[in-house]
Design a protein around this nucleic acid. Sequence first.
RNA 1: CGGGGUGUAGCGCAGCCUGGUAGCGCACCGCGUUUGGGACGCGGUGGUCGGCGGUUCAAAUCCGCCCACCCCGACCA
Length: 585
Amino acid sequence: MKMSHLFGTTLRQAPADAETASHQLLVRAGFIRQLSAGVYSLMPLGWRAVDKIEDIMRSEMNAIGGQELYKPVVHPADIWKETGRWYKFGAEMSRFQDRKGRDMALATTHEEVVTDLARREIQSYKQFPILIYHIQTKWRDDPRPRAGLIRVREFTMKDSYSLDADEAGLDRQYRAHFQAYFNIFHRCALPVLAVKADVGLMGGSLAHEYMYLTPAGEDTLMLCDHCGYRANRQIALFKKPTPEKEEAGELKKVATPGAATIEDLAKFLKIPKAKTAKALFMVAKFSEGEQETHKLVFAVVRGDMEVNETKLANSIKAVELRAAHTEEITAIGAEPGYASPINLKGALVVVDDLIPVSPNLVAGANESGYHFVNVNYGRDFQADIVADLAAAEEGYACPNCGTPMRTSRGVEVGNIFKLGTFYSKAMGANYLDKNGKEQPIVMGSYGIGSGRLLACVAEEHRDEKGLCWPMSMAPFDVHLVALRGSEQQAEELYADLTAAGLEVLFDDREESPGVKFNDADLIGLPIRITIGERSLKEGGVELKLRREEDKRIVKLDQVVTDVTRTKEQLLAELRGKVVTVPFEE
RNA sequence: CGGGGUGUAGCGCAGCCUGGUAGCGCACCGCGUUUGGGACGCGGUGGUCGGCGGUUCAAAUCCGCCCACCCCGACCA
């Protein structure tokens, strides 16, 4: 490709609204352009890089038995109604009607379509295992897209789906993906960590997320350096402290004027926050087929801890949670700031499992300015559900070994998910087993976003001058910089390199050397060849790797062989990064 | 959805307070000089000042409504 005609120019300054490094560089280098919030065009450079990523995905998917196909992006509502997700998804799913008035949706994901295909195509256990995948567009109307390609509304995803006769078959395919995903990321030179993740409400039994650790990420991970425990904070466990045993004291109402927060309350009564109970009112949405119900939820954790909303939602199987309005709280006779589980009517009471073993807590009295002291679970109040609700925090004890955990920010670049039989049961996707008996297909789903992966690699591989692509996914292999006085030789070299099967970005523009070198650094192709009067005088061209400062002179008739060899070396180096990662439940 | 911010040429910005011919840098076009790390001179092209309405002799500037985008939070199978 001649740079004089490359569509998409480099910018000296990044747009003011780009904050993340990968976002700024991808825009400046001409890889992406924004159309709307969370909606981007991939320019030729960006598209070529994504194309390389997708080829890596294909090769790893094919290696574990994957069959590529293509599924639609517009779905009839019917299949989504069958699984109930038509009702469970909120505004994130964009819906419309076709000309006949039929409900349609833009694909947020493809489980329903796969299950529909499976029920049509699968009859016998003899057909298993099946692994199908596609690389397709998803639309999720995210309320807050951000950070360039890291969190967008329209994106391309490689999603694969496994179909098996039983749990053992699913487990084999799940483990195959577990390693194949590491292979993909390793080949893209992206360091990732697999962490256990929320399985949500779809009846899954196990899920892992592949996290790229970066401050630009928006997920928080809990990590134990001692035993290796790692989990998304949404579901992270921790070893809870054991409260000292005490005789239950007498339940008493005390005046606590102005102590509407745990902070003030602890100060006012001169007690540690751990001796108080914290109350949180949420409104939960439940979805049962077309039926949608809302319930006020009263969640209680110890005063020194925070409620983890994912844990809370999972404990009551709610599809959505939001903070309750003051009127909703007072409507059931509770008093915000002084709320109490005692004598509470009309709310679903959920308490953290630390509460029943914590004696003599201070809790609200449902009366402004008053609290109860010596509140004891069982004697003074009951819960509808007791569950782990407390959010893990930096420094909390690891659930396995008790070592204080640390937190880190990360971006989820992929996930794998044991779906089980939720979809097959809901949609009647069955097969006949050896005994001629009908059984639901056991499914798994596995996804990697290609644009997000591109952004993460950009985030990881860059310096103050620009991007620094790994050989495996660089949009071109070679950046050929032609300086004045070498036009003829440069054209010939460009033709030779291209004929040898190398992908060359040829800077044939009439620009000063400084501009060309800076653009080459910004775009970040792994191999740079400079040809000019000086290099010709020295006997050929100058070859330099983007990541190194060193340059060397290569004779003109050796360039094609040398570049080919260098490319092979760089690719081999990346293959060397592919290592087997032990599977952990 | 709540809080904060920004919309003026492709990109970065000034002008707005105090209403009176729309400006600067980069980029782009032409000519000339220059040429191994973001050159220089001269001459140019390009703007419904986010939109609609109002006030006014006169609105980028004042007022109202709306829209878009960014950041923080809520949210994220």
